[in-house]
Design a protein around this nucleic acid. Sequence first.
DNA 1: ACATTAAGTGATT
DNA 2: AATCACTTAATGT
Length: 209
Amino acid sequence: MNITEKFKTIFEPELLREIESKAKIVSVKEGDVLLDIGQTVRIIPLLLKGILKITRVDQAGKELLLYYVHANESCAMTFTCCMQQYPSEVKATAESEVEFLAIPIGNMDEWIAKFPTWKSFVMRTIRSRFNELLNAIDQLAFQKLDERLVHYLKEKSKATGSSLINLSHEEIANEMASSREVISRLLKKLENDKKVLLYRNQIKLLREL
DNA sequence: ACATTAAGTGATT
DNA sequence: AATCACTTAATGT
């Protein structure tokens, strides 16, 4: 895997060399938990391949989806946590087979001071993620569940690159911190509106969605 | 054919 | 919108 190729448009050459020498390539299987709540961040992941799912977990162990980290992105939470070695507030799970560059956190201070492209990369990912989080809050506060569901389905489809979603209603309900029956009813409504097709453990998104 | 699990439904809060 | 109790449908053995 040629890291330099992949990132040469966003990072300066000197930084690329630095990454090559300091970062390790790590791959994990689908479902692997990269970081659990309470754990301390030790490395910054730079995604090369696959999708990372970032969730919050409540006392009962229910998970609420916060956002996905796609290829060529990094997780904003790790930046903010790692700077001062705070334990993680979120859980990161590999949504598919994932390959990422593990950058030791020791380099962060230096890199930010030394490399403008690194600094702006960090700032950019924090800013866009922060905006997404604001969005998520708006959804929880002001949007009805049916709108959240549509948003969820679209995100999922984008994450997997397919309009066919392989999830049961129960799994969706868990990720949205809702209940199965409610999700079933909302999906039924969407099906009646010709927005989706429902199968067992599968949902097909239609263009009208 | 039977058991198991997903999905659908009406009533209740 | 959540929960309960129950039914119906799909799937695995």
